[in-house]
């Protein structure tokens, strides 16, 4: 509607009232989601700090002490096993967040608590609801990844100390590349008939085990290595290793890792947005 149109006082008040929601709607949704996370805040904090502590202790003091053969090289020769594994563990931790925030939270929003329908009746648009969910999950991923990076620093598990400041962002990118397609999938479900548990068992766990997390991917035979190639976790782990200790990598490889992660994120975003719109505006 152009400024020259004559509108009634009611219409004028509506146009004025929608200005802020049109601009900041996604932030309002994120605010709500983060407020709701407080209900399980301790789970987030204990999971975010406790899980890296257990892994870094277990691998740093246990497994690494037991391994003789170096598994990977940095620019100045072999790196310690803990340094090799840590960036992948950080990426895994960030990738774990969507297995909760983009599954059960989505089903709750549409079906169990129905809060998305409340948002839908407000000035917010479906794409802003998606945006808010993503922002809130990013906040949780960032918290988890920062906690991880801090502990890695304390354990001497980063090759270059400044890398601890960059690694969380690599983790978040990996989390989004895995999470956004999952969000689109979850939003398309009318019921949870065990699909989320199946994602955990048959998607997340194999991805965790076969993405070159604990050993270089080329150790695996070709017929298993493909899991790594399509896995956002592998791409994020490789980028993390490059950031952390300068794992040797060509510019093209770095660009490919980044491109694939960005591509999966973008495709997931478009699909999630489309699914939300179809469901909420039918």
């Amino acid at each position: 509607m152009s400024a020259t149109d004559v509108v009634s006082p009611a219409a004028a008040s509506a146009i004025e009232a929608a200005r802020r929601p049109r601009r900041f709607g996604a932030l309002y949704v994120a605010e709500h989601q983060i407020r709701a996370m407080r209900a399980y805040g301790w789970t987030i904090v204990i999971g975010g700090v406790g899980s890296p502590l257990v892994y870094l202790l277990g691998i740093g003091l246990g497994l690494a002490a037991f391994l003789d053969a170096p598994v990977a090289d940095g620019p100045d020769g072999p790196v310690r096993y803990l340094v090799f594994v840590a960036p992948a563990l950080l990426a895994t931790a960030a990738t774990t967040v969507p297995t909760e925030e983009f599954t059960y939270t989505v089903m709750a929003g549409f079906k169990w608590r129905r809060i998305f329908w409340g948002m839908n009746a407000s000035p917010l648009a479906p794409h802003q609801i998606v945006g808010g969910l993503v922002l809130a999950a990013m906040a949780r991923m960032l918290f988890t990844a920062v906690a991880y990076a801090g502990l890695m620093l304390a354990f001497g598990a980063v090759g270059r100390p400044w890398a601890a400041a960059v690694l969380p962002f690599v983790g978040v990118l990996g989390g989004l590349a895995f999470g956004l397609p999952l969000l689109a999938f979850s939003a398309s479900l009318k019921d949870d008939a065990g699909q989320f548990a199946a994602v955990q068992r048959f998607v997340f766990t194999p991805m965790f085990l076969f993405s070159g997390t604990f050993y270089p991917l080329d150790t695996l035979p070709q017929w298993l290595a493909w899991i790594g190639w399509i896995s956002p976790l592998w791409h994020a782990s490789e980028l993390g290793r490059w950031v952390s200790y300068g794992a040797p990598m060509s510019g093209a490889t770095i660009a490919a890792h980044l491109g694939i992660l960005a591509g999966m994120t973008a495709a997931g975003w478009v699909l999630a947005r489309r699914t939300f719109v179809a469901r909420m505006r039918g």
């Binding site: 509607m1 009611a10 219409a11 008040s13 509506a14 146009i15 009232a17 929608a18 929601p21 049109r22 709607g25 009746a121 407000s122 000035p123 917010l124 648009a125």
Partner: peptide, 10 residues
């Protein structure tokens, strides 16, 4: 065309 505007006052 004006969904958010209408919903803002409902």
């Amino acid at each position: 065309t004006h969904g958010p505007e209408i919903r803002a006052r409902l």
